[in-house]
């Protein structure tokens, strides 16, 4: 037991927690986006999909997924916070001048994009799941909530900005996870980095299409 605790106290152990929970969250954002694409099939398809999710495993499926996601989010934030505080403490005096040589905008803004995404996720749940931040929430009518929610321009813009940040977070996070887990042969690294960019682009384009489609009247 002491050695398991030692692992989770080490910097690499915390990074492994970040990588594994990140992997679960990648799977979720991809599945969430693909599921929501059914909005383009019309109200019946989307509402039937929502009902199917609710009734999966006699209603247990949703709660299993929610439990795993909540645990992943909590652990992801715990490892990120802990590692960030340690790294801040590791350089008490900042450089007057520091020129980035290899890092990317995405890698340097991981902490900011992460914090903003947390705020977005809380708002998103209040908006479409609890409905208390929604102007006209109808329990069970997902299609109606979707369209009515995105007709509010500032809300739609916030969703677009948050998803661009999600894309940056995924752009660095997806391949970074592989290296953290020790899976980073130089021969395959460019595929991993290309794959991360593609994965991020697919998720962002899918998600951003929803508010744009509603505002453009493609989804009435």
């Amino acid at each position: 037991m002491t050695h398991a605790l030692g692992f989770f106290r080490s910097t690499i152990g915390k990074k492994v927690v970040m990588a594994v929970t990140g992997l679960i969250l990648f799977g979720f954002v991809l599945g969430h986006m693909i599921g929501n694409l059914q909005v383009y099939l019309g109200p019946e398809a989307l509402n039937a999909y929502a009902l199917w999710l609710r009734e999966l495993l006699h209603g247990g499926g949703l709660w299993i997924a929610r439990s795993v996601l909540l645990a992943s989010v909590v652990l992801h934030i715990w490892s990120a916070t802990s590692l960030t505080l340690e790294s801040r403490a590791a350089r008490p005096i900042a450089y007057r001048k520091w020129e980035p040589q290899a890092s990317t905008y995405a890698s340097r803004t991981m902490r900011w994009s992460g914090v903003i995404l947390l705020a977005f996720v809380i708002y998103h749940l209040m908006h479409f799941t609890f409905g208390n931040a929604h102007p006209d929430f109808v329990e069970g009518d997902v299609y109606h909530n979707f369209v009515a929610g995105f007709r509010v321009l500032p809300v739609a813009l916030f969703y677009i900005v948050a998803n661009v940040l999600l894309g940056l977070h995924l752009r660095h996070g997806v391949w970074s996870m592989l290296r953290t887990l020790g899976l980073a042969h130089p021969r395959y690294m460019r595929f991993a980095q290309g794959g991360a960019a593609l994965f991020a682009a697919v998720v962002v384009l899918g998600n951003v299409s929803f508010p744009i489609a509603v505002l453009a009247g493609i989804v009435p």
């Binding site: 910097t11 690499i12 915390k14 990074k15 492994v16 590692l83 340690e86 790294s87 801040r88 403490a89 590791a90 350089r91 980035p100 040589q101 290899a102 890092s103 990317t104 890698s107 340097r108 991981m110 660095h172 391949w175 970074s176 592989l178 290296r179 953290t180 887990l181 020790g182 899976l183 980073a184 042969h185 130089p186 690294m189």
Partner: peptide, 27 residues
């Protein structure tokens, strides 16, 4: 601090130690 895969270390290393070695350490 801990590694967040920026790659700044490899860029300044006078011996060009590749950052991929960090994956070997992690493994």
């Amino acid at each position: 601090g801990s590694c967040t895969n920026h790659g700044e270390c490899e860029a300044v290393c006078p011996k060009g130690i590749p950052v991929a070695f960090i994956a070997r350490m992690n493994a």
